[in-house]
Every structure is written in structure tokens, then in C-alpha cells.
């Protein structure tokens, strides 16, 4: 992948300071990690514009990036609902069989003092991932089809971004793998459809994160919003 660095722009910054705070700042990019200031110059499609100091991607335009993100988010949402409603794991030992869904795992904490943790787990592995995907689809789907952004798309996308660290479906899948090894000795384990749905979900999430350049998405959102 080729890399092209953006130009530093002391002149533009000086101009921005001397004028009234308005559109003069619109052509600038600030690196979110190290605060370096750049003048926004077009980067060829498919190449990354990086911050010269810390290497954060500031611009990464791609063909049809928007529709890819929306499609991957929609796929994830379908897989997530499959993961919730189908049996997840089946354990048999000594003629007894125990079947657990993703819900059962979250509700394992629901007795006694661990009740708040049951709610948190429910949020981490089901509610927040689902809500985040819905918000992404709402904010970006109309634009991916060439329309204006939906009303309040900017707010929706900001919420989706804020939820990103707290949506932990993929961590749950690795947790399942560890749990399976722990019980593998004392019982035979059968993996349900939901388990494979979750595994697929993780892979798609990794793909999705590689397609997303957040700063580029934000600029597109701003340009296409009329609200």
C-alpha cells in the first residue's frame, strides 16, 4: 500500500486565525492523536494520507467504501440475531444434556450480588453491538445509495463511535473458546449454529474496521448532510 503524507500548512493556519471562525477552518485536518495541523489536500483513491509525526491515518478514500461498510454492518446484524436466537453450545455428561444460548451466558450472573454484572454482560455482548450496527446502518445507508444523509445522521454516527470500545461480541467468542477447553475434559461439547454465527461476526468486524477511515467518513457525512 502506498503512503502519501499530507502537507503541513502554517500559512493556512495563520489565515484561519486571522479570519472570523467560520469556513476558513473547514479545509484543515487536525490529527486526533498528536494534534498536528494539516491542510486538506486530495489523496488519490486507495492510498492513505498519514500524519507525518505519529502515523495516524487522516485520509483514506476508497471506491464504494460507504456501501461496503453498510453491507458488512447489515451482515453482522443478521449474524448477531442468529447468534442470539439459536442454541449456542450443548454440553453432555453422564447422560445429561445442557443447552445454553448467548442469553443464558449473560443471565448466569443474574442471581444475588452479581445481578448488575448480568445487565452489563447483556449490554456488552448483545445490546451495544446490535445498537451500534443499527446506528451505523442508519447513518450511512442513505448516503451509500447516493441520497443525502438521514436526519441526525451525525449524532447517530457519533454515538456509534462512542460505543465502539464497549461492544465486545468478539471478545465473548474468544471467551467461549477458553471455556470450551476448560470443560472439554469432563463432558462432550457440541457447537451450535449460534457459535459459528458469532465466529463469522468477528471476522466481519475485523474486515469492517479496515475499511473505515473515520476522518474520511466524517468529512463525507458533513458534506452530504443538509440538516
Amino acid at each position: 500500500m502506498t503512503t502519501k503524507t499530507l502537507q503541513t500548512a502554517p500559512l493556512a493556519a495563520a489565515a484561519a486565525r486571522s479570519h472570523t471562525p467560520g469556513d476558513s477552518t473547514a479545509g484543515l485536518v487536525v490529527c486526533p492523536t498528536c494534534d498536528a495541523l494539516y491542510k486538506l489536500t486530495p489523496v488519490p483513491v486507495g492510498t492513505r494520507g498519514r500524519c507525518t509525526r505519529c502515523g495516524t491515518t487522516l485520509s483514506f478514500p476508497r471506491e464504494r467504501a460507504m456501501s461496503r461498510i453498510v453491507m458488512l454492518a447489515a451482515t453482522s446484524l443478521v449474524l448477531l440475531s442468529a447468534a442470539v436466537f439459536f442454541p449456542f453450545l450443548e454440553l453432555s455428561a453422564g447422560g445429561m444434556t445442557r443447552r445454553a444460548s448467548v442469553f443464558d451466558a449473560a443471565l448466569a450472573f443474574s442471581t444475588g450480588l452479581t445481578l448488575p454484572l448480568a445487565l452489563a454482560t447483556l449490554a456488552f455482548i448483545i445490546l451495544l453491538p446490535a445498537l451500534r450496527l443499527t446506528l451505523i446502518i442508519y447513518a450511512l445507508a442513505p448516503m451509500s445509495m447516493g441520497w443525502y444523509a438521514a436526519p441526525r445522521a451525525i449524532t447517530a454516527f457519533r454515538w456509534a463511535e462512542a460505543m465502539r470500545p464497549w461492544a465486545m461480541a468478539e471478545i465473548f467468542v474468544i471467551g467461549v473458546a477458553v471455556a470450551l477447553v476448560k470443560v472439554a475434559g469432563l463432558a462432550s461439547v457440541h457447537l451450535g449454529i449460534a457459535f459459528w454465527a458469532m465466529v463469522l461476526l468477528v471476522l466481519i468486524n475485523v474486515l469492517n474496521d479496515n475499511f473505515m477511515c473515520r476522518l474520511t467518513l466524517w468529512r463525507t457525512l458533513e458534506q452530504r448532510s443538509r440538516f
Binding site: 486565525r17 484543515l28 494534534d35 463511535e161 468529512r219
Partner: peptide, 17 residues
Amino acid sequence: VLTAHAAGLRGCRTCGR
């Protein structure tokens, strides 16, 4: 490097504006 802070601007950590 010229930073937004040094240039009298305030950079947004979410969207880079």
C-alpha cells in the same frame, strides 16, 4: 510540527475538524 493548539485552534478528537 505545527499543532492546532499552537495555531490557536482546537482539534476534534472524534472527527479531526
